[in-house]
Design a binder for these strands. Sequence first.
DNA 1: TTCATTTAGTTGCATTTGCAACAAAAAATG
DNA 2: CATTTTTTGTTGCAAATGCAACTAAATGAA
Lengths: 150, 150
Amino acid sequence: MRDQLREIGMIARALDSISNIEFKELALTKGQYLYLVRICEEPGIIQEKLAELIKVDRTTAARAIQKLETNGLITKQEDPHNKKIKRLVPTERGQELYPIIIREHEHSTDIALTGLSDQEAEQLLRLLKRVRHNIEGDWESVKKGKKRDY
Amino acid sequence: MRDQLREIGMIARALDSISNIEFKELALTKGQYLYLVRICEEPGIIQEKLAELIKVDRTTAARAIQKLETNGLITKQEDPHNKKIKRLVPTERGQELYPIIIREHEHSTDIALTGLSDQEAEQLLRLLKRVRHNIEGDWESVKKGKKRDY
DNA sequence: TTCATTTAGTTGCATTTGCAACAAAAAATG
DNA sequence: CATTTTTTGTTGCAAATGCAACTAAATGAA
């Protein structure tokens, strides 16, 4: 039975839950790790793009990012050519957390992929990328108010 | 690179977001569809098991379920042999929503699996089930306060 | 250039989320 | 049997979440 999406939901909730509990000792509150890793990997990214990247509501991202700044993990830098956007850059302290977050993530990946051959893990990644690509359009248009017919 | 878990997170957030928006016209608020479908498919299930099934915090489930009852979509029935548990059963109105939720879910699955062959979709499902199985243990133990070493 | 549209960001408000901390029934241990 | 532990459920907070509604800059169209 076509339960792919249910499995994905279960896995995502379980892992997010684990990460949130584990990162509490880094003084990161719910969800913050998501934004911080991406900002470290793509410094200069703006809020709007970051929200699109991780598939979260713009306003939720706005507040999470605001809090990261308040806590001294990132800064918002103004762009010389565009007064509207604010480029997000990790602070030194933010960068220090990056490898810790990645290590946790690697460990979760190890657990998740236990028993899968390299070929299977690669195949899984390929298929997931296609699925993600398939749904991105719907997410963006539904977010903007478009109705899907079915 | 081993981005399987990131892809899963993106897909899950995007689809959950879409579902929440689409089910608003059924007067279902955030997340409620998750619980309602499962109660329809497994009537008599108890709160604790339901939370484990969908991988969500016990107290979050408690309140979502409470609201489903308040809104007349499910009832909590006492068990004749066990005074502690409350068996969750959909009402008629709850059952009416079931096929609507499933239809939406089927459509999302159609979109998500676009371009995948039957073999690929099946392989994806098999792999996801294994991944889910792999992480369930960690989720439950971390939830109960156990620390993972890595 | 002018005006409309899109993009980027913010704030208000109502709701959901989830850790603590608790209670009570049931099950396990001795 | 008594008593310890686990299971199931709840409530109090504090925080995150997300839809509306709003600004203002940038971009596009006429």
